[in-house]
Design a protein around this nucleic acid. Structure first.
Lengths: 76, 76
DNA sequence: CCTAAATCTTCCCGTTCGGGAATAATACTG
DNA sequence: CAGTATTATTCCCGAACGGGAAGATTTAGG
């Protein structure tokens, strides 16, 4: 089935951060969040605050939006 | 400029809830969250937990996803 | 209008998030 | 390998979330 949004966000953030040659600390400073949060976010921590996630995604020109829920019976 | 995601979520949830003839309490029970949270979510509370928002959106077959950030200089 | 339902607000309060620092574990590089 | 940079984990702790209930306020109907 589809990846959870937390995993999607984590993967996205890590990929973009690496693509930009940034360390977690640098990204944290840019986003105005702590390094521990960046680490946990990238690893898919399930319960995070929307407002803090937004700050990180904003660094990459992204935000959150409402999308169709992934189907339960999807093919891998 | 573009609506903030919190406002978008709030409006979406309220519209869909009304369309389904539900009260906030009924929606809360369906989603497994408190009525006060439903109220605050619908009114765009900025700092909410991703995991709890997901539970509410799931009732309507929706989830959250990464989208392009709304431009700052957009037309209304 | 008047009433009842629905929503909003406030309260107390347990839970947990997130910052910062320190430490451990992992990944790079020469 | 060794030595270092980066990342993960743990700790303490203040801040904030979210539940439930009670009380105000708004809305909807008759």
């Amino acid at each position: 089935m589809g990846k959870e949004i937390e995993e999607t966000i984590g993967t996205f953030v890590r990929d973009r951060r690496k693509a930009g040659q940034m360390t977690q600390r640098e990204l944290g400073e840019l986003a105005g969040v702590g390094t521990r949060f960046v680490s946990e976010l990238e690893r898919g921590k399930p319960s995070v605050r929307l407002s803090v996630v937004k700050k990180v995604l904003a660094v990459f020109g992204k935000s959150l939006g409402i999308v169709d829920a992934p189907r339960q019976d999807e093919q891998p």
